Simulated scan of single mutants.
Amino acid sequence: MKKAALAFIGVLGFGLATVGQDYPNPEFNNEVYAFQKDSSKLFRLEKQTATVENKTSIVSGSRVEYNIDAVKATVRLGNIDRLSFVFWTGAAASGIAPGVAPGSRGDSMIRASGVDPSLLNVGGANSPDNLSLYRMDAAKGRRTILLVKAGGYFSKKGGESEKYSLSTKRIREGYFEMFVDKKLPPGEYAFVIRSQGMDMMRGGVTLFCFGVD
Rank of each mutant, 00 (worst) to 15 (best):
M1V: 04
M1T: 06
M1S: 13
A4E: 12
L6E: 15
A7V: 04
F8W: 05
G10R: 12
G10T: 11
F14R: 07
L16T: 05
L16D: 01
L16V: 13
T18R: 13
D22K: 10
Y23E: 11
N30W: 08
N30R: 07
F35S: 04
Q36F: 07
D38Q: 11
S39C: 03
L45H: 03
A50D: 07
T51D: 15
E53L: 13
S57F: 03
S60R: 10
S60P: 00
G61N: 05
S62E: 13
V64A: 10
N67F: 06
N67H: 10
D69T: 11
V71N: 04
A73N: 09
T74G: 13
V75I: 15
G78R: 09
G78F: 05
I80K: 02
R82S: 14
W88V: 01
W88R: 04
G90S: 02
G95V: 06
G99F: 09
V100S: 08
V100I: 15
S104Y: 09
D107A: 15
M109Y: 14
I110S: 04
V115D: 05
V115L: 12
V122I: 14
A125M: 12
S127Y: 03
S127C: 05
N130S: 15
Y134E: 04
R135W: 00
A138N: 04
A139Y: 13
A139K: 14
K140V: 09
R142S: 13
R143T: 02
V148F: 05
G152R: 02
Y153F: 13
Y153D: 12
K157C: 00
Y164M: 05
S165Y: 07
S165L: 08
L166A: 09
S167G: 05
K169W: 02
R170A: 11
R172H: 03
R172T: 12
G174T: 06
F176M: 10
F176T: 00
D181V: 04
K183H: 14
P185S: 14
G187H: 11
G187F: 12
Y189T: 07
A190D: 06
A190F: 07
I193H: 03
Q196H: 05
M200V: 01
R202C: 01
G203A: 11
C209E: 05
C209L: 09
V212S: 04
